[in-house]
Simulated assay, not measured.
Amino acid sequence: MAQATIGDSEFDRDTALTPRGPGSPGGSGVYEAELPAGWTIGGAVNGGFLLAVLGRGLAAELPHSDPFTITAHYLSVSRPGPAVVRTQTVRTGRALSTGQASLLQYDADGAEVERIRVLATYGDLGALSDDVRTTAKPPALPPYEHCLGKEHDDGSHPLSEIARRLDIRLDPATAGWAAGAPSGRGEMRGWFGLADGRPMDPLALLLAVDALPPTTFEMGLTGWVPTVELTAHIRCRPAPGPVRIAITTRNLAGGFLEEDAEVWDSEDRLVAQSRQLAAAPRK
């Protein structure tokens, strides 16, 4: 099978936006989108995929093309079907530009309902300094071929629909839940790529930070873990090859938990970071 390319892949086609018309003089635009069922978890569209849809809209609107930081508040559940993306330029500068965007869908009466709202700053990742000073270390993962992939999915898990579009290989040490023996630790680690071989880029990293199974699975909790707020930082363009993702949760309290994610590329560079607040599964 030929490897998909950036711009010619299922991910690119499914995050594509169609302008309703020319942008306004004030720096805003309106786009039509179609959210496919293939990127859902239990019937709800994945939060990272939605972040990529809005990230694409802002890249089309702002003078800079690369997301540096993007913060999303998830206001209501997004379902497969038509959607509208509204973007607005907040500020433009020589090195950075900031914009906001919302994704809306329609209720039974045809009225628009806002699903997600983001505020983001964009720049040029290619113009960043190569000076790196960090104490962060990439996750110690077993080799790709020794991690657990889709051959262990019997199709019964709610993650199965989106999983068919992703190439995820989980560290066996954080996949005890799949065999009914969760470790009890709030950790999830694995290799990540797109199933059709599309290379990773900044837009795909927005998907990656919310693509692994939730840490609650390994804590012995099953069920939906809806995101309340998610902030992603894109630090540099990833090198070719799958990335490695490590997610940790240190505090589940009051029915909510945090998930801190790090994404590392094949050259051992920290290419993305994120934190989200999510609701714990209901017992």
Rank of each mutant, 00 (worst) to 15 (best):
G110P: 05
S9Y: 02
L212A: 08
V113T: 15
K283I: 12
S183D: 11
A163N: 15
L257Q: 09
E32K: 12
L207N: 05
T249P: 03
F49G: 03
L51R: 08
P238Y: 01
A59H: 00
A72E: 02
A44I: 15
S65P: 14
P82A: 04
I168F: 09
A83R: 04
P238N: 08
F192C: 08
D210P: 11
I245T: 05
R165A: 04
D66L: 00
L75F: 10
R282Y: 14
A60P: 02
R185F: 12
V90L: 15
A253S: 14
T135F: 15
H73N: 15
A95V: 13
P240H: 00
W191T: 03
G197K: 08
D260Y: 10
F49N: 04
G184H: 06
Y74C: 03
L75M: 14
R235M: 11
R169G: 06
Y31Q: 03
T89R: 12
G42C: 05
A33F: 02
P158W: 13
W191L: 08
A44N: 13
T40W: 09
P214H: 09
D107R: 11
L252K: 10
T69I: 13
R275G: 05
Y122I: 06
G81L: 12
L252D: 07
R86T: 15
P158S: 11
W39Q: 06
L62I: 09
A140P: 10
F68S: 14
L148K: 07
V45K: 03
A232Y: 05
R79Y: 11
G99L: 10
A272P: 10
T174A: 08
G48A: 01
I116V: 15
L50V: 14
E262M: 09
R164H: 13
D14G: 03
G220F: 00
A246Y: 02
A52L: 10
V118A: 11
G7R: 06
S97Y: 09
A232W: 02
R94V: 13
E262K: 04
E258Q: 11
I245F: 04
R164V: 11
E229Q: 13
G48R: 04
P139A: 13
R13I: 04
P213N: 01
S102F: 10
V228Y: 01
H233Y: 15
H64Y: 10
T231M: 06
G93Q: 09
G255V: 06
A163L: 14
D171E: 06
T5I: 08
W39E: 05
D201L: 06
P63Q: 03
A101D: 06
L128Q: 14
L206C: 04
L221G: 03
A253T: 15
G155N: 01
T227R: 01
S156Q: 08
A16L: 00
L119N: 14
E229W: 04
S76L: 05
E161W: 08
D107V: 06
L54E: 07
W224M: 12
F256D: 00
G176L: 13
N251S: 14
D12I: 00
M1Q: 15
A52I: 06
P22D: 00
A239P: 00
V85R: 03
T227F: 00
A140F: 11
M219A: 04
V53L: 07
